[in-house]
Write a protein that binds this DNA or RNA. Structure first.
Length: 488
RNA sequence: CGGGACGUAGCGCAGCCCGGUAGCGCACCUGAAUGGGGUUCAGGGGGUCGCGGGUUCGAAUCCCGCCGUCCCGACCA
């Protein structure tokens, strides 16, 4: 760890604080190649929890995992006009293989629509083959100009779901269902509340009919696009001849959806829950839920407390317990004083610290310390398991509630003038729910002047925003048409 | 690709103005003590001073060129 014992405070410099937390909590490191990121075991452990949580939900909604190639013929990308326009500028291209120039360059996937729908076209003959519900866990490469650990790296890990359906309505329902899956995951696992809704034309996925997104508020009041779900219409089906025979005997192009979340979620986690001591990981997402710090002064005491610690892990952390087990770790390092260990585990965000010393054993108790609130309790060993589980569940709820409360405290609803809006965006930032302009120039103009964009058009029913609405800049009319914020 | 700053040990930095053959803190290694909120003492290892050229008896230091990184813009999950 660095010599500097203090993190920059969030309030002073949010970016510096974020980078320090990610590096010092050992979630990730910079790679020798600019813009690429090495995800270290602590960071990957969180990703594994995200994978497991989402994968269970995907399975429950009928999706199956598959894997498609990293390399895509360049011509594939060009088959859908908007898609190539959107992604071509940020692709990495392989021009040589085996020492020879390739006849056709290969693109390293920035996303896999093209290769996947090319394969779907081979697999789908009839309406009986639909819906086809596939997901893949993969890495993709997008050649971004500026990068930030987890939030925007040249290469990132993600999950991309791809489906084919017989009708528009079925595809639309799928698109919205998966957005709902993301929302549930982000709120119930990550304790990260999100605003869901439809994206505007300017923020739509390249090649989609409609895009929906999840937006979370970070602690600097900026928005993070945490996940997207697209109704691709028949655009890709037409480009890749993904046709099927209908029930009535005719042929039609399939309707596709795609949806994804990435390792960016880890960045969102840090920026949602981190505090001046470092990271805070919500229990359901924490690779380690409980860390035991044994305390001793002599070899005899050491033997005693370590035995007690390992007994607890055997009882409560046994893998044979399955999902009922607590994910525990005993920090038995000899050379570190307990205080130093406390600071380190706080930095890493482990939800509960359990202190066990000789004085505790004499009283048949342990000290339970919550990472979120710092609250410290003495708990009898006899009821420890139940107490830990209850505390973890309470923390999960408390963290979501706190994040929601924080977001609402920095949300502006109702009447707002253009002058006030500009003031807010130039200053602290906020989620502003306000009228928007149907004229795309208006959104662009406001972005130009304030850096704020329409994150989503939030609505439980995802209404279709075809009609021009009141313009924030011209009229400043108080409606709740759009969520405006500065974004990552 | 435009504007700014910076490249000296794993990390953070001093030294450069005024040239004399590299130093500090942390981390790391060894030993001992210590251990309920960032231990202490003693000893030790580790550096092509970003790269290339020039000036000079002598360059981390001065001059020229190049490369790289970071920050601010334009672009984006």
């Amino acid at each position: 760890m660095a010599d500097d014992k203090k993190l920059p405070t969030r309030a002073e410099d949010f970016s510096a604080w974020y980078n320090e937390v990610v590096l010092r909590a050992e979630l990730a490191d910079y790679s020798p190649v600019r813009g690429c990121m090495v995800i270290r075991p602590d960071g990957y452990g969180i990703w594994e929890r995200i994978q497991r949580g989402l994968d269970d939900m995907f399975k429950a909604t009928g999706h199956r995992n598959a894997y498609f190639p990293l390399l895509i013929p360049q011509s594939f990308l060009s088959k859908e006009a908007e898609h190539v326009e959107g992604f071509a500028p940020e692709t990495a291209v392989v021009t040589h293989g085996g020492g020879k120039a390739l006849e056709e360059p290969l693109v390293i996937r920035p996303t896999s629509e093209t290769i996947i729908y090319a394969m779907f076209a081979k697999w789908v003959q009839s309406y009986r083959d639909l819906p086809l519900l596939i997901n893949q866990w993969a890495n993709v490469v997008r050649w971004e100009m500026r990068t930030r650990l987890f939030l925007r790296t040249l290469e990132f890990l993600w999950q991309e779901g791809h489906t084919a359906h017989a009708t528009h309505d079925e595809a639309e329902a799928e698109t919205r269902k998966m957005l709902g899956v993301y929302r549930t995951f982000m709120e119930s696992f990550m304790a990260m509340p999100v605003v869901t809704g439809r994206k505007t034309e300017s923020e739509k996925f390249a090649g989609a009919l409609r895009t929906y997104g999840c937006e979370a508020m970070m602690q600097d009041n900026k928005a993070l696009q945490a996940g997207t779900s697209h109704n691709l219409g028949q655009n890709f089906a037409k480009a890749f001849e993904l046709k099927f025979q209908t029930e009535s005997g005719g042929t039609d192009f399939a309707w596709n959806t795609s949806w994804g979340v990435s390792t960016r979620l880890i960045g969102g986690l840090v920026m949602t829950h981190g505090d001046d001591k470092g990271l805070r990981v919500p229990p359901r997402l924490a690779p380690t839920e409980v860390v035991i710090v044994p305390i001793w002064r002599s070899d005899d005491e050491k033997a005693r407390v370590l035995e007690a610690a390992h007994k607890l892990v055997a009882e409560l952390g046994d893998y044979a317990l399955g999902d009922a087990r607590l994910r525990m770790h005993v920090d038995a390092r000899e050379t570190m004083k307990p205080g130093a260990k406390y600071y380190e585990w706080e930095l890493r965000g482990v939800p509960i610290r359990l202190e066990i010393g000789p004085r505790d054993l004499d009283k048949q108790q342990a000290v339970v310390v919550r990472r979120d609130s710092g609250e410290k309790k003495f708990v009898p060993l006899a009821t420890l398991g139940a107490e830990l589980k209850a505390t973890l569940a309470a923390m999960q709820d408390a963290m979501l509630a706190a994040a929601k409360e924080r977001r609402e405290a920095h949300s502006i609803r109702g009447a707002i003038t253009w002058a006030k809006f500009k003031d807010v965006m130039d200053g602290e930032g906020a989620f502003v729910y306000a009228g928007w302009c149907g004229d795309p120039k208006c959104e662009a103009e406001i972005k130009e002047e304030t850096k704020a964009t329409i994150r989503v058009l939030p609505d439980a029913e995802f209404r279709t925003p075809d009609a021009p609405k009141s313009c924030l800049k011209c009229g400043g009319k108080a409606t709740e048409e759009a969520l405006w914020a500065k974004a990552y």
